[in-house]
Write a protein that binds this DNA or RNA. Sequence first.
DNA 1: TATTGTTATACTCTATAACTATA
DNA 2: TATAGTTATAGAGTATAACAATA
Lengths: 149, 149
Amino acid sequence: MESQPSLDVARLGSALDRLTRLLRRSSLPGDLSPAAASTLYTLVTTGPARLTALAAAEHVSQPAMTQLVARLEAAGLVARGADPDDGRVVIVSATDAGRDLSLARRAARGEVLATLLGRLPRDQRDAIAAAVPALEGLVALGDADPGRA
Amino acid sequence: MESQPSLDVARLGSALDRLTRLLRRSSLPGDLSPAAASTLYTLVTTGPARLTALAAAEHVSQPAMTQLVARLEAAGLVARGADPDDGRVVIVSATDAGRDLSLARRAARGEVLATLLGRLPRDQRDAIAAAVPALEGLVALGDADPGRA
DNA sequence: TATTGTTATACTCTATAACTATA
DNA sequence: TATAGTTATAGAGTATAACAATA
């Protein structure tokens, strides 16, 4: 029931899937699990957060986030602090080492992508460049609508 | 040392990552792990394969693939057969139920994507549509170059 | 001997349930 | 009572090492 014959969602989905697996296989510094890398990245980009908020943002259970943060803390990548206004709360923040590692991982993956992009015909590279804001918009829509995704 | 200020690879990488996580958390039929879903999809699209070849294709160890196939077999999604020419070999193939489930998952994910895309401004939707062949080209490059990814 | 696959074992990561402490 | 977080326990999924069977 759609009117977009030019946009084959199955092809898009498959391409996204395979591209992500491709990037995931490329060796990145730090040896973090996907959830750990994502959590660290969230902390680096959006600042300190409560443990419960992190669990919700990363779509894992609260106990899972407790353990994940414990692992990241043991690795020196995050620090746990208290909330002066509420004794129950744990505030998690990235350490300098955590920030550096997250940025290094992001850069390393960017290089893998850049290498592949550099071997693509110019018009295709341009097409991808033009689609980046739209892809970001798609993510924003998905994040804003928990009922759908 | 690059000349593509218009293509921010870090942004692209991050968007791909978040988009894939978004799609992955959308509930799909069958309750398969990512590796199981990918293996089944490979069998459905490229036909029966040896266990060792599957392990290599999915980038998991041979024992991991033995267990993965055992789980898929227990679920009735794949069947194990013998190679008449070589008694050591196990040939894995998707059953009808496995093929149906894989196609249903693909369709369901397509619907999630289509819903999100439908809420995007038309020009952004067009930009993504225009980039699909280029994204596929990127995947092809990555698959063809095992040394890089 | 080399190759195909399985079994044994251990580790990471996750979830649910039960618990503690603070509000 | 409700909320923030931890601890206990169990299960899925993976890897490496050791093994069995076939070539």
